[in-house]
């Protein structure tokens, strides 16, 4: 192998948790540093942003006009661009603003809202630039992140399933919460990847990894309605970290027309 691949880790509107998953790879961290050149990663080094990247890991959503320009710059510098985490892949929890008026939020939250420059929406990276791979999760799963890096280094497709959480619950022998306890759980329509964390602690799935591939969200919404899950509970269930992901977006609320697209403030 010739020169080590240059990796950059970038952040937009987000909590930094997904980037930290990389630092959380404690045992593998030295090996990662050995295999790649970490050329830009503000959580870990103060190296300035220069040159181009073989792999860009992008965290966070686009929520300001400045970020729109930045993401185009990063895309132009990067051979492979992978988005990491629900903010980058679906707009994050901050995309709840997309269902309401950002002006109202600004007025309520900030003493002097006129100083805040923001977009009316929080949107995933893929709405702005082409993305080579999306690593889901809130936060991303450490094992999946390592698999992604290993696969990228080996030049193969990562083994990242896009099927439901149920498949992994059943493989693990975990009792189905909706069927055995009547607990509403998003697992049946959510992409697996967390290692069935919540169901293994008897909590319904929160949908951190967003909709599973080619699923039928409405089928589950209707079933939970029939089972008597209150409408506000159902609405909250789908409106968290992946609220703006197609499928979850239209689950329980009508999508407001004025927030479709990326209207600037």
């Amino acid at each position: 192998m010739g020169k080590k691949p240059r990796v950059g880790v970038f952040k937009f509107a987000s909590c930094d948790g997904c980037q930290l998953s990389l630092l959380d790879c404690e045992e593998e961290l030295l090996e990662i540093a050995d295999r790649v050149e970490v050329a830009y990663f503000l959580e870990a080094t103060r190296l300035p942003l220069t040159g181009s990247f073989d792999l860009a890991l992008v965290e966070g959503s686009i929520s300001t006009p400045e970020q729109v320009e930045q993401i185009h710059d990063i895309r132009a510098r990067s051979r492979v661009l992978v988005t990491i985490g629900a903010c980058a892949t679906a707009g994050g929890i901050q995309a709840l603003r997309n269902f309401a008026s950002v002006h109202e939020f600004l007025r309520l939250v900030y003493a002097t809202p006129e100083y805040v420059e923001t977009l009316a929406t929080s949107t995933p990276i893929a709405d702005h630039v082409p993305v080579d791979f999306e690593l889901r999760g809130c936060p991303v799963n450490k094992t999946q992140l390592l698999e992604l890096i290993s696969a990228t280094l080996a030049g193969r497709r990562p083994n990242i399933p896009r099927h439901s959480v149920c498949i992994d619950c059943k493989r693990a022998g975990i009792t189905c919460l909706p069927v055995a306890y009547g607990v509403p759980c998003l697992g049946p329509v959510t992409q697996s990847g967390c290692g069935v964390l919540c169901p293994s602690y008897n909590r319904g799935c929160y949908g951190c990894f967003g909709p599973a591939q080619l699923t039928n969200v409405q089928g589950l919404v209707q079933a939970y309605r029939r089972a008597g899950v209150p409408e506000d509970e159902l609405d909250r269930l789908f409106h968290t970290f992946n609220a703006w992901a197609p499928g979850f977006r239209e689950s329980t609320r009508p999508v407001p027309k004025e927030t479709e697209g990326n209207t600037e403030h």
Binding site: R35, R156, H163, S164, K170, N216
Partner: peptide
Amino acid sequence: KRCIACANCTMVCPTCFCFTVQEVTDLS
């Protein structure tokens, strides 16, 4: 319209036998 393709039926079925094969590499 009702089926959500979650796969629970096949996972609990005592005769369903389908599997996939994965090749995994490590970092090195």
